[in-house]
């Protein structure tokens, strides 16, 4: 243990002496970082384009695509649908996921490993197979093109993220604290709300955020479940490339990029705030 801490402490010093990492590695990292970030970021200048095509880089600038996005009933309805479904999914997946994480970390029962793997399955199974499978049964159960259908399907897909996020924070939770609280006279409820909840909350919050973003971003299942009456934002975006060649998608993409970034950064900031406090 002490040895490990020692090397940890010694390492940065050594790294600094060596000038951190070599220039070759530095270049490779820089290029990879560029590859990771650039394609996401190019949609932002594109959204201020003045042209009616997907021409890039734009030759003239305007706000017309933002006007078109926020002024269009179709796009706003898609955005609203996505946000509503996303919030319902986040609530459902968080409740179910927290329960699973509690069950998995706080009890030992037969088939525990199997349940854990079961929960991860929606992440690993091929997306297109999951989509046609859900579509197939939803046609029969008449859940196609219904809000509840979208919520159920997306909750299934979001569950693994919540379970992982919450399990991780529960695994780091030291249960002797509960005993300590109890010896000091706290009831089980007080312990839960005053000791457990504050420590597990960041994990739960990131689970909630992951679930919301998973639903907000999901396209493949949504493409199958869509009907003219109910379309999520990613579906509308997909159609605007394949069917309409409508540059409003650039504004929609920029809004999505900014919004998801904010949603995912908030739990991180909350966590940092707690740590510094």
């Amino acid at each position: 243990m002490t040895e490990a801490t020692e090397t940890r402490e010694r390492e940065p010093v050594k790294a600094q002496r060596d000038g951190g990492i070599g220039w070759g590695l530095r270049t490779a990292v820089g290029l990879t970082a560029l590859l990771l970030i650039a394609p996401t970021v190019v949609v932002i200048p594109m959204s201020f384009s003045g042209a009616t095509t997907f021409e890039f880089p734009p030759k003239s600038w305007s706000l017309r695509w933002y006007k078109s996005f926020f002024g269009s009933e179709k796009w706003m309805y898609a955005l609203l649908t996505s946000v509503q479904i996303g919030l319902l999914v986040a609530v459902a997946a968080t409740i179910l996921g927290v329960a699973v994480a509690l069950g998995l970390t706080r009890s030992r029962f037969r088939g525990r490993g199997a349940v854990r793997q079961l929960m991860m399955a929606p992440m690993i199974m091929p997306g297109i197979v999951v989509a046609i499978a859900i579509y197939g049964v939803f046609i029969r159960w008449q859940l196609n093109g219904t809000a509840i259908g979208f919520v159920i399907a997306h909750t299934v897909l979001a569950l693994p993220f919540v379970v992982t996020a919450v399990s991780t924070s529960l695994a780091g939770y030291d249960r002797t604290q509960d005993i300590a609280a109890a010896t000091l006279g706290a009831t089980a409820w007080t312990t839960f709300f005053r000791i457990t909840v504050p420590q597990v909350l960041p994990g739960v919050l990131s689970g909630f955020a992951f679930a919301f973003v998973t639903s907000l971003d999901e396209v493949v299942v949504a493409l199958f479940l869509q009907t003219p009456d109910i379309q999520t934002l990613p579906v509308q975006m997909y159609n605007s490339i394949t069917l309409e060649i409508d540059p409003t998608i650039a504004a929609a993409s920029s809004v999505m990029v900014v919004a998801t970034t904010l949603v995912l950064l908030v739990p991180q900031l909350v966590r940092r705030e707690r740590r510094t406090r």
């Binding site: 990771l36 970030i37 394609p39 996401t40 190019v42 949609v43 594109m46 997907f54 890039f56 992951f210 973003v213 971003d217 396209v219 990613p234 975006m237 997909y238 490339i241 998608i249 650039a250 993409s253 920029s254 999505m256 990029v257 998801t260 970034t261 995912l264």
Partner: peptide, 16 residues
Amino acid sequence: LPFWTSLMARNFAWYM
């Protein structure tokens, strides 16, 4: 960040 930011936006970017 790109891992979590809009798959559709990224595919649209590659399309452009």
